[in-house]
Amino acid sequence: MKLLSDLFNVQEVWAHCDIPCGIYETNTLLVSAQTVIRMVEVMEAIPMDKPSLKDRNNFIRCVKVKEGNAQLCEEQLITLWADFFRPEHLEKFPDLHDKVWKAVKLASDNRQDVSMEKAKELMFACLAVADMFDKVKVEPKDNLAGSVSDNPDAPKKKFLG
C-alpha cells in the first residue's frame, strides 16, 4: 500500500456535511441555548424531597432535552467555527477562537451540570459568537427569515427546483 501511495499523488478528500447547503445560521444555536436555560428552570422547580412518579418522569424528560440541546449548541458552534468563519474573520475578531472554545466548553459543562449560572453563561457565549456571525454574514439571495448567511462561494446556479 505504501507503493500505491508513492505512485499516486494522494489528495485530501473531505467527508463533511458543509458541501452543498452552504447556508449558515445562528437561530438554532440561540434557541438551543435558550432551551437549556428553560430546562434548568423547570428542573429547579421540581421538588427533590419525596418527588412523585410524575415529578421523576418530568425530571428525566428535562434532563434529556437539556442534554440534547446542549449537544446541539456544541455541534452548531463547531460547524460555524470549522466551516463558516474564515481566516479573514480572524483579523476582524482576534479572539474568535477563544470565544468559540469557551462557548463549546460551556455547552459541555451544561450537559454535566444543572446550573442556572452556567446556562446563562452559555447563552451569553452563544450570543457573542452570533454577534460575530452577524457582522460578517453574507445576505442570502433568497428572502430567508432570521440571522442567516449565504455562502459566498456557493454555486451560483440552483441545480434542482
Binding site: M1, L4, V10, Q11, E12, A15, H16
Partner: peptide, 23 residues
C-alpha cells in the same frame, strides 16, 4: 483511470474514517 485520496472529516463514519486511504 485511478486516483487516490486520504479521508478527512467524519461524515462517512463508520465505513470511511479520517486517515483512511481510498482509490
Amino acid at each position: 483511470p485511478f486516483s487516490m485520496f486520504v479521508v478527512r472529516g467524519r461524515s462517512m463514519i463508520p465505513d470511511y474514517k479520517p486517515g483512511d486511504y481510498v482509490v
